[in-house]
């Protein structure tokens, strides 16, 4: 099979399209690159969906943790502590166990034991907790003057939150949030590795990398290829978040604009 044919056959293998059987016999570099790359579809799916959904929930949690009322504050604090204080590995285990139980209660929960939904929920809750802590930290360091100025202009209530507090919080939190996005992306490799079963050999990039490592008994080819893909996608994340950062800080004079530095303030 030429490389083009290999790509046609396996580029979408991880979502079940193309050749049904995985390559056998001599495993070419082209097959390595194509299949591991195909697996990246799952990693990207998990990362994008969990981040998008987690972002909104994180805002709610951060406000909850900053709230005066203990009824709002305590649950948020505990949720954040629970998810930040335990390894993702163990969270996946408990979640899978719980989903199996739910499934036996009602067929409504059938989809949960599949990685596409179940693992996504865990990653979503996990990233929400981490991001909430970042946002909470930012919320506490909003310059007093900003809020006072808003009051002086008669901007109050929800309008003050939406126009003044929230944008400032986001701007302050963005560099750390970029790191969280990168770590969440890396954490997606744990999904099939430790917790959720792989259906019809439709796995993520790590699944295919270990497939090759298992067949060729040579870990020095597939894992570095996997690493290369991740470095590439990490650069994409840094670039994308950098664009958003630019927009968040567009009102500031050129020299004062904080550049997003890939600095791990809050991580997994």
């Amino acid at each position: 099979m030429s490389c083009i044919e290999t790509i046609q056959a396996y580029a979408l293998r991880s979502i079940g399209l193309g050749e049904r059987l995985l390559p056998r016999g001599d495993y070419t570099l082209c097959e390595h690159f194509t299949l591991i790359g195909s697996g990246m579809i799952w990693n990207v799916y998990f990362a994008v969906m969990a981040l998008l959904l987690g972002f909104f929930f994180a805002n709610v949690l951060a406000l909850g943790k900053a709230a005066q009322s203990a009824w709002l504050r305590k649950p948020s604090e505990w949720f954040i502590f629970l998810f930040r204080g335990s390894p993702l590995f163990i969270q996946f285990f408990f979640a899978y166990f719980l989903f199996l139980r739910l499934k036996s209660v009602s067929p409504m929960f059938d989809g949960l034991t599949a990685a596409g939904l179940g693992a996504l929920i865990v990653l979503f809750l996990n990233t929400a907790a981490y991001s909430a802590e970042i946002f909470y930290g930012a919320l506490r360091s909003i310059p007093k003057g900003d809020v006072e100025a808003a009051d002086a202009y008669g901007i109050t209530g929800f309008r003050r939150f939406r126009r003044i507090i929230w944008p400032t919080m986001l701007r302050l939190a963005w560099p750390a949030y970029t790191n969280e996005a990168i770590f969440l992306f890396h954490a997606t490799t744990l999904v099939f590795f430790s917790a959720f079963p792989v259906h019809q050999q439709k796995g993520d990039s790590l699944y295919y990398a270990s497939y090759f490592a298992d067949k060729t008994f040579n870990p020095f080819v597939p894992y570095p290829i996997l690493a290369m893909y991740f470095i590439l996608f990490t650069l994409v994340i840094v670039w994308l978040f950098g664009m958003v950062n630019k927009r968040l800080n567009r009102h500031l004079p050129q020299a004062q604009r904080p550049r997003v530095r890939y600095r791990p303030n809050l991580l997994r």
Partner: peptide, 18 residues
């Protein structure tokens, strides 16, 4: 830059032998 761009599992799977 390189070490941080790679998920730690991927690193651990081949690095010790190397």
């Amino acid at each position: 830059a390189i070490v941080r761009g790679v998920p730690d599992i991927a690193f651990f799977l081949f690095f010790v032998i190397a």
